[in-house]
Amino acid sequence: MATIHRDVPIDAAPEEIWAAIRDWGEVHRRLAPGFVTDTRVEGDVRVVTFADGTVVHELIVSLDDDARRIAYALVGGSLDVVHHHASMQVFAEAGRRSRFVWITDLQPHGLAEPIAAMIDQGIRVIRRTLEATATPAS
């Protein structure tokens, strides 16, 4: 099994970042526009379409407002994975900065490199989007 762990600073307040992540059916609008082109909610599953045509069905396992953490598992779609579980979490830092942590466990291990590349691309879009829409510090 492979684990991909990313930990990045974002110049936005943690409550603003969490609001965008928590709105889990609006990834294509609030979190990663352009990288994700569509998100549909079907019960506890969101169907996410990426710009490259990849479609994944993600079961929302946990949505924890106190910890500012969402966890999800792939339960279908066009990726050929045996196991995929991920979480995103937001931590407050000094000022109006935050730390965004995205952890993904997956099998087969051979998919680690292409999935890591997707995650890295996603983080660049997420960071740019959240910083551009952040409320300026007063």
Rank of each mutant, 00 (worst) to 15 (best):
A117E: 15
T135F: 09
A94M: 07
A117F: 00
R99Y: 02
A137Q: 13
R96F: 02
P114C: 13
I119V: 15
R97G: 03
A137D: 14
A86S: 10
A132Q: 15
G110V: 09
G110E: 13
E113N: 04
I119A: 13
R97K: 12
I123A: 07
T133Y: 07
T135R: 15
E113R: 10
W102H: 10
V125L: 08
A134N: 11
R124P: 00
A92M: 04
V90L: 07
M88G: 06
H84Q: 10
W102Q: 08
M88N: 12
A112T: 01
I103Y: 03
A132G: 10
W102P: 05
Q89M: 06
R96T: 08
L130V: 06
A112W: 06
Q107C: 04
R124A: 15
Q107H: 10
V125C: 10
R96P: 01
E93Y: 03
V82N: 08
A116Y: 03
V125F: 04
I123D: 14
H109T: 13
L106F: 06
A92P: 07
G110R: 14
H83W: 03
P114R: 14
P108N: 08
T135C: 13
S87R: 13
E93N: 03
A116R: 15
R128S: 12
T104V: 12
A137G: 11
V82F: 00
V82R: 13
G110P: 02
S98C: 04
S87I: 00
A94P: 01
V101A: 00
F91M: 03
A112M: 11
I119R: 10
L106H: 08
H84T: 01
